[in-house]
């Protein structure tokens, strides 16, 4: 697979002036007759004939204008065959021709007009809509990079919306009030080349409706209202009250709802006319002037819809006074109650029946409430002429009586009496009389229904006969016109009859043993439930928590407080940095005689990015120390990216989210080759691209940096253009003898110098490892990790498998306190092969047991160096012990510097 596009042509231009654009040649042509041929899209596949080849010279020409949007790339398969036998003398070779993009396409919106809506009073930055424009030019190229911009807003004034220039998302920028403007219209422009002046633009419109919410209280025109009505009359429209509301008309946010504060007798009712928001006061129950001449009511108004949360707390129920004057009307007398029931004893003799006084049926004067004095009484409906009445007093007597009148009928006799006022006009009041037989069962209360009259019989089993005592025992319900019981039951404790079911005429309700058992069971449950609930609450208080079904670990785990439940993107794999400033050490590895140097300080070919948001562009020389300090200061740091010579598209965010964008890399290399060819003929066409990737998709595990060397074995002068670090790495890749970087001094720490050791409990760990040198021209991956730690001892990090990714892996780990300036560590590896360096600086009183973790290197070309500097202030000469190395390929160096004040007892165990 070719790494680069071998050749390029520009779309929309006549490229033939550059012919031949490429030549192929086989070494076999020196001693064999060779003919060359090509095939592929643009040659013998549509579009045909764009590329042709001189079969004898191998020169490839372009013949037509190409369109990148049609064919972004051509792959020419080149063949070299024997001129006579036609046998392929070389494996086919793919020559990729990249079509360079020109900005010949304008952004195209997905819609000409976008329609959207948003509620008023929404929070700022609320997303309203998202505009989408596409550009047919090359993806990941500036020609297709679209920037959005609001050109105008109607109605004009303060900008109510903000448009994200990159994403096309329209957000609220200001407080929206529908009552001010209920619709906005925006003209939006999309320009490619990221909005540059030379970009091509297109426009669309956005219509945004502001949706109403109930953020206005209804009000009334007046502070108080009054009305009057005659007594004993109803009104469907006693008063009309206009409500005013600024919310959207005819919506529930606008429609008023009137309600009374008072109105205990329910004589009045409000309804709202939804067409004009007028509240109509109705009188639904007659008023009695003699009882109340004036009513002082109060009412309030709200909306049918609930108030918006932004104003709901401000709503106060303020009653509006409403005075109702009742107008007196002259009323005729009346019988109160209008129906009276009289009983006659069953054992009444015939003699006694004559002139038997049934009772008094006097009419009442409505104006005074007393017995009417100016009326005369007459019998009205009395089919059997059973009664006679005293015309002046209303005394009712039996005229004649026949038991058959009751028995044949429904058990009672019904008649009407009249009370007629004297004078003109005469008013007549009518009363109803019901006569029935009094027997043992007639002592019970009488119930009245719409259908029939039912008499509740006296208790069949009377345990207490006192009138002021509640009845006990059983009861029977039966129609008043019959003896057949329709339901029976028992009296409960307070004398209330327990109404059983209604079995129908002639049926009787009885409770069986099963029903009693159910009742007992129900009572038991009522007793047990509170007890069990109390026990459960007690268990909670005692710390017992319910376990999820499915065993330990199933279900949700609670998010601890103060955690926020968010993912903490420390940006550092495998460590747990804290919010502390970190001072790192600059580690330099020297190859003594061979002069191999790999330093941790980063050469000035990239820029730093901090905090994960801001991007600092430009060239900036940073040392490893500076970098580490920065990382310590910004625990959640972003990736570091840098481009030599020129910046290209692709943002930090893209790398973070998508890992290494291979499309971007392709574009990068192509454009860089293009740019180099323009500016410097003698410039080597090699490149070093350092891309710090935040463990994105496809990047090596645990890495934040990748370095790719593209070189050709015929020309290695490009090494001189690299920074010292990557030059060294490239040289390792190429298998060259590595020379030390001038000016870089790295020695063991001088214990007599003013060495600032870290504070107690500080640990410095440096791990470096590298695998076997790669083959020439291959890719090198460099990983760098920087760790910050607190004041506690940190376990050694496992060294990553050097064989996993690429050919050289460098892992650097820094852990220190706030002020320590660590010394450089000089290592003399015998070979430029796998190197593992572990350095620890331990403070006094540290517990060193079990903290050292030197990897077991089974490979024969490994170097393990362990250095320890322990405790300041000591005058003890350093002791350096070098183990006897039977195998020359393995070197283990152990050095200890121990001073008297360290307090350590020499319990270190170093492999």
């Amino acid at each position: 697979e070719w790494i680069e596009f071998a050749a390029a042509c520009r779309e929309g231009e006549d490229n033939s002036k550059r012919n031949p654009i490429a030549k192929i040649r086989s070494d076999c042509e020196e001693n064999q007759p060779i003919v060359y041929s090509i095939s592929g899209i643009g040659i013998d596949q549509p579009p045909y004939g764009i590329f042709v080849i001189n079969k004898n010279t191998g020169e490839i020409n372009i013949t037509s204008i190409v369109d990148r949007e049609v064919t972004p790339m051509f792959v020419i398969r080149c063949y070299a065959r024997h001129a006579i036998t036609n046998r392929e003398v070389e494996p086919p070779l793919d020559l990729r021709i990249r079509v360079l993009d020109i900005n010949d396409n304008a952004p195209v919106f997905s819609q000409a007009t976008y329609m959207g809506s948003i509620e008023e009073s929404s929070m700022e930055t609320t997303l309203v809509m998202k505009l989408i424009a596409t550009d047919a030019d090359e993806p990941n190229n500036l020609n297709s990079k679209i920037a959005y911009k609001i050109v105008s807003q109607e109605p004009a004034g303060a900008s109510m919306f903000i448009l994200n220039r990159d994403s096309g998302e329209v957000h609220i920028a200001n407080y929206l009030d529908r009552e001010q403007y209920d619709r906005y219209s925006l003209v939006v422009r999309a320009s490619d080349r990221d909005g540059a002046a030379d970009g091509i633009s297109s426009q669309c419109t956005c219509s945004i409706e502001v949706i109403d919410v109930n953020d206005n209280f209804p009000t009334l025109l007046q502070n108080s209202y009054s009305a009057s009505i005659e007594e004993n009359t109803l009104s469907s429209q006693l008063l009309m009250i206009q409500a005013i509301d600024r919310d959207q008309m005819f919506s529930d946010n606008w429609l008023a709802e009137f309600y009374f504060i008072g109105n205990e007798d329910n004589c009045f009712e409000f309804v709202t006319d939804s067409t004009n928001n007028v509240g109509i006061l109705k009188v639904i129950k007659p008023l009695n002037y003699e009882q109340m001449q004036s009513l002082q009511l109060s009412f309030a108004v709200r909306n049918k819809a609930a108030f918006h949360h932004s104003i709901a707390s401000q709503y106060q129920v303020i009653g509006t006074p409403l005075t109702i004057q009742v107008i007196n009307v002259k009323e005729p007398p009346s019988f109160q109650p209008s129906t009276r029931i009289f009983y006659i004893p069953r054992d009444l003799s015939k003699e006694a029946m004559s002139n038997y006084i049934v009772g008094m049926c006097a009419a009442t004067d409505e104006e005074t409430g007393l017995i009417a004095s100016n009326v005369r009484y007459l019998m009205g409906y009395d089919p059997s002429s059973m009664f006679k009445i005293n015309a002046k007093t209303g005394e009712l007597r039996l005229n004649k009586f026949d038991w058959s009148m009751l028995n044949v009928g429904k058990g009672f006799y019904k008649a009407e009496i009249l009370a007629i006022t004297e004078g003109i006009p005469a008013n007549t009041a009518t009363g109803t009389i019901v006569l029935t037989i009094q027997d043992d069962n007639d002592n019970c209360p009488v119930l009245s229904t719409d259908i029939r009259k039912i008499c509740m019989s006296a208790p069949s089993t009377v345990l207490s006969a006192q009138a002021d005592q509640p009845p006990k025992g059983s009861w029977t319900l039966r129609p008043i016109d019959g003896k057949t019981a329709v339901s029976t039951g028992v009296y409960v404790g307070d004398g209330t009859p327990d109404v059983g079911r209604w079995p129908g005429r002639g049926g009787t309700t009885t409770l069986g043993g099963g029903a009693i058992a159910l009742m007992f069971l129900g009572a038991l449950i009522f007793l047990l439930v509170p007890i069990l609930m109390a026990m459960s609450a007690c268990c909670d208080r005692c710390g017992y928590k319910a376990r999820p079904v499915g065993g330990v670990g199933a279900g949700f785990e609670p998010v601890p407080e103060c955690d926020g439940g968010a993912i903490h993107s420390w940006g550092i794999e495998g460590a747990h940095p804290q919010d502390q400033d970190v001072t790192s050490i600059s580690v330099t590895k020297h190859a003594g005689s061979a002069g191999e140097i790999v330093e941790s300080s980063v050469s000035g070919i990239y820029t730093n990015t901090r905090g994960g948001t801001a991007i600092n562009t430009g060239m900036k020389e940073t040392s490893g120390l500076e970098t580490a300090v920065d990382y310590g200061r910004f625990p959640i740091y972003g990736t570091t990216s840098g481009y030599r010579k020129e910046s290209v598209g692709g943002t930090l965010q893209e790398y973070r989210e998508g890992g290494v964008n291979m499309a971007f890399l392709d574009s990068y290399f192509a454009e860089k080759a293009f740019a180099y060819a323009d500016e410097d003929e003698g410039r080597p066409a090699n490149d070093c691209l350092l891309i710090y990737d935040h463990e994105g998709i496809g990047s090596p595990v645990g890495s934040i940096g990748c370095c790719s060397f593209i070189g050709e074995d015929m020309d290695d002068t490009y090494l001189d253009t690299l920074g010292p670090k990557f030059k060294t790495l490239a040289e390792i890749c190429l298998g060259k003898v590595v020379e030390p970087i001038p000016g870089v001094s790295a020695t063991f720490p001088n214990i007599d110098s003013d060495l600032k050791l870290p504070p107690p409990g500080t640990t410095i760990i440096v791990n470096e490892s590298s695998s076997m040198p790669p083959q020439v021209g291959s890719t090198t991956f460099v990983t760098e990790n920087t760790y910050a730690s607190g004041a506690t001892l940190q376990p050694a990090r496992p060294i990553p498998d050097p064989l996993l990714h690429g050919n050289v892996m460098v892992t650097e780990t820094y852990t220190s306190g706030s002020t320590f300036q660590p010394p450089a560590l000089t290592i003399d590896p015998l070979r430029a092969s796998n190197v593992v360096v572990t350095e620890r600086v331990l403070a006094p009183n540290s517990d060193l047991r079990g903290v050292l973790n030197i990897p077991d290197l089974t490979d024969g070309a490994n170097v393990v160096v362990t250095e320890r500097v322990i405790a300041p202030g000591s005058r003890l000469p350093p002791s350096l012990s070098i183990p006897d190395l039977a195998d020359g390929s393995n070197v283990v160096v152990t050095e200890r510097v121990i001073r008297p004040a360290s307090g350590l007892q020499g319990s270190l165990n170093i492999p």
């Binding site: 550059r18 040649r25 070494d27 070299a80 494996p91 080759a673």
Partner: peptide, 25 residues
């Protein structure tokens, strides 16, 4: 070997041949 020479792009119409050999990523 099977060699490819490509004429590099140059706005100044100055050609420069660049030789490629088989390379793998």
């Amino acid at each position: 070997g099977f060699h490819v020479e490509v004429k590099e792009w140059n706005e100044n119409n100055v050609t420069r041949w660049k030789t490629f050999k088989r390379q793998k990523r």
